[in-house]
């Protein structure tokens, strides 16, 4: 039986798709059979970030509507073994997602995979609610700013009350915080909330802190999950997060300003 993991945030543009791709690729590299499912119907971003957009023939909606089988729709990643993508449809709207349909597809995927990573759309509408509904675990992607934290808080309330686990009275969805686009410099200037601030407000476990990094943009333009850019700061931070997700303890990195060079020490004060 697969673990169903939703990557969600409430607020848009905080790094959910970047995170889904990175965590999915990381889990697959660690040997777990992993499938990434794009719930952002109408937008279709995940396949771009994964660099497989030209190989999409059938998508999630086709499978829900039984116009294609899962085998026809699943795209195998060319770089990482054990990694598959189920793309969203660009031409349909969110109503094409049905609860029964989603459940059927996730159940079928559960037989073959260890992890099902659901990349949620922004907001708390139907697509986002369905991405959350069947989850066993949630990665809450949050940027260190007030509106993002507020939306994450809202999403945590929904996870605690409006998921299959809540409805069945099962143990709650495991919730972990991934703080992304973190800039120690801007935290120091008081322009961003610190890790401690966000942890205090949301009061859930911290899976990782991903620094604001040019490497993310470069990787997504190249259609490569940033975790495969092994030398990059964001790539390493995602590697740490995957290791923690799998139960390993690792210290958090990239939280402090880099040590200033001689020039900085002389003139920066």
């Amino acid at each position: 039986m697969a673990k169903i993991v939703v990557v969600t945030s409430g607020k848009g543009g905080v790094g959910k798709t970047t995170t889904s791709a990175a965590i999915g690729a990381g889990l697959a590299k660690a040997g777990h059979r992993t499938v990434l499912v794009d719930f952002d119907v109408g937008l279709r971003n995940l396949d771009l970030i994964m660099g497989c957009e030209r190989r999409v023939v059938y998508d999630f909606i086709n499978v829900i509507h039984e116009e294609a089988s899962l085998n026809q729709a699943l795209i195998r990643d060319k770089r990482v073994d054990n990694l598959f993508i189920l793309a969203a449809s660009q031409t349909r709207d969110k109503d094409a997602l049905t609860e029964d349909g989603v459940e059927r597809v996730l159940t079928e995927l559960s037989r073959d995979f260890d992890y099902i990573i659901c990349d949620s759309p922004a907001g708390i509408e139907r697509g986002a609610l369905l991405a959350m509904y069947f989850a066993d675990e949630a990665i809450i992607v949050t940027n260190p700013e007030v509106s993002s934290v507020r939306d994450s808080d809202r999403v945590l309330g929904i996870l605690a009350s409006k998921t299959r686990r809540a409805a069945n009275g099962e143990p709650p969805v495991r919730e972990q915080l991934l703080l992304t686009r973190y800039s120690p410099l801007r935290v120091q200037k008081g322009e961003m909330l610190s890790v401690e601030d966000v942890k205090e407000i949301l009061a859930i476990d911290l899976l990782g802190v991903i620094p604001e990094s040019q490497a993310v943009l470069n990787a997504s333009n190249a259609g490569v999950p940033v975790i495969l850019e092994e030398e990059s700061d964001a790539g390493q931070a995602y590697q740490d997060a995957v290791a923690r997700f799998l139960g390993e303890e690792r210290p958090h990195r990239f939280l402090q300003l880099e040590k200033k060079g001689l020039f900085g020490r002389l003139f920066g004060g």
Binding site: D153, R154, I158, A160
Partner: peptide
């Protein structure tokens, strides 16, 4: 015992 979250 649970936090009361935004929107609840």
């Amino acid at each position: 015992t649970q936090p009361v979250r935004s929107g609840q």
